[in-house]
Design a protein around this nucleic acid. Structure first.
Lengths: 257, 257
DNA sequence: TAATCTATTTCGGTA
DNA sequence: TACCGAAGTAGATTA
């Protein structure tokens, strides 16, 4: 269902109907956007594409960028209404510019949620298109090349890490959090493995260091714990950090070949 | 410009025209999606909303979630064409199901880029709507409540950190990276401040630790360096890490009151 | 609900 | 271009 160049009142009705029917609703037109919540933001008038999803998500897209300029996560309540600007609060119609929208100065979309309390408000002064879409989408995405794939690769062929490595557990809990792979080497020393699907920086090294520290403390044994970072590659600074902290690196990609 | 329930050939033409005109193009219909690049993914047929932006970004949205199920970043080249399924490669038209799209079994959108090499392909078996939007959007977002606001707050009133604190530099370079705020305390000891706009976990503590370590080494003085984490709050594990590493915490929000 | 960590993170800044 | 860190990160998982 699509309206082109609708009056604000008609647009309002179509949007309200779409929200009611749990459709995916899109609105394109000239609008301002205000956000208040975890932070706060405003943007002055421009032509933008707004999408309201039945799960409560809201997206405001400009013609640039992969990310929306404003948004609201799933779980919001969407609301739509027509509004009069200040100074035209009376009912008598002195506005001669418009015929069917004599009383509406703006179409407002609001998406609100709590925890955290936040609100997105889109105020349209002109609507060029309203559409509502009802469809079915049963299928889910299958994705490969993830960190999970890298883990499977090592579990199936532990020698990829090093000869004699024996995985004992995944997601093993320590006082610093869960370790990706926990095992022993050929000399029966404890090994902590941290996996990253792509080239890593200093943060991943620090993360591995936290796990090694925690495990050495948890085991309260004086036997040292080896920490091995597994990733396709490391940055220069990360490499230096690895050396400083006595950690090791094995180059491996999530998918073979 | 909007087409409802167009034939695949007409849809193709409208989309090609929209891309050519540097418009924002949306397509809603039943499609499969394949991605190959940094990772790889497929999703079987479903009704989805596809947006092609003139800057090269592509977004595939289902009716759920804030994030697109598939996407491509800005900088891609968009391409659109009609395709025949395997087994109907001949030119003679034996397909009686469709009238105007006798030769087209699918409408394909491809968005490709290099560095890294990756490709998104959306194959529509049915198109319910095609729209192209041309608008203007001159204005930019103004955002407050960021880490930068927190920094300004402290620079304007250093006593918020602690009495006697004197900021000397922001973004001061160390061998481990740039420190948010660098200064001295009332006793003239070096102070490293790491800022976070929201509640922090262990990663922020490790980050601060890297800077303190680096600075102690860079200054090659035996005088110790104080590290202060500034954020609204810390998690329990982060708090323990702070203590373990001899670091301090000051509770402060990006915006006052 | 809170905490933790991954992500095809994206995005901006800088060397 | 690579590196580094912020983000209203979102999303998934687990306690």
């Amino acid at each position: 269902m699509t309206l082109e160049q609708p009056g604000l009142e008609d647009a309002c009705e179509a949007i309200a109907d779409g929200i009611e029917r749990e459709a995916l609703v899109t609105v394109f037109g000239r609008c301002t956007v205000d956000y208040e919540g975890r932070a706060s933001s405003t943007i002055e008038a421009g032509d933008r594409h707004v999408m309201l999803k039945p799960d409560g998500a809201a997206l405001v897209h400009t013609d640039e960028g992969q990310q929306p300029v404003n948004w609201q996560p799933p779980g919001c309540e969407h609301e739509v209404y027509c509004d009069r600007a200040k100074g035209s609060e009376t009912d008598d119609d002195t506005d001669v510019d418009s015929d069917r929208d004599a009383n509406a100065d703006a179409l407002v979309l609001e998406s609100v949620r709590s925890t955290p309390e936040e609100r997105l408000r889109v105020r349209f002064q002109r609507v060029l298109q309203v559409s509502t879409f009802s469809g079915t989408d049963e299928n889910e995405l299958t994705l490969s090349g993830t960190e999970e794939d890298l883990r499977q690769r090592i579990l199936e062929e532990p020698a990829l890490l090093e000869a004699g490595f024996t995985p004992l557990a995944t997601e093993r809990e320590t006082s610093a959090g869960a370790v990706d792979i926990y095992g022993t080497d050929a000399a029966n020393r404890t090994v902590v493995v941290e996996l990253k699907r792509r080239r890593v920086g200093p943060d991943a090294v620090s993360q591995l260091r936290r796990y090694v520290d925690a495990l050495e403390r948890d085991l309260h044994a004086d036997a040292d714990v080896r920490g091995i970072l597994v990733a396709p590659s490391v940055t220069g600074r990360a490499d230096r950090l690895l050396v400083d902290h006595g950690l090791e690196f094995v180059s491996l990609e999530p998918t073979g070949e």
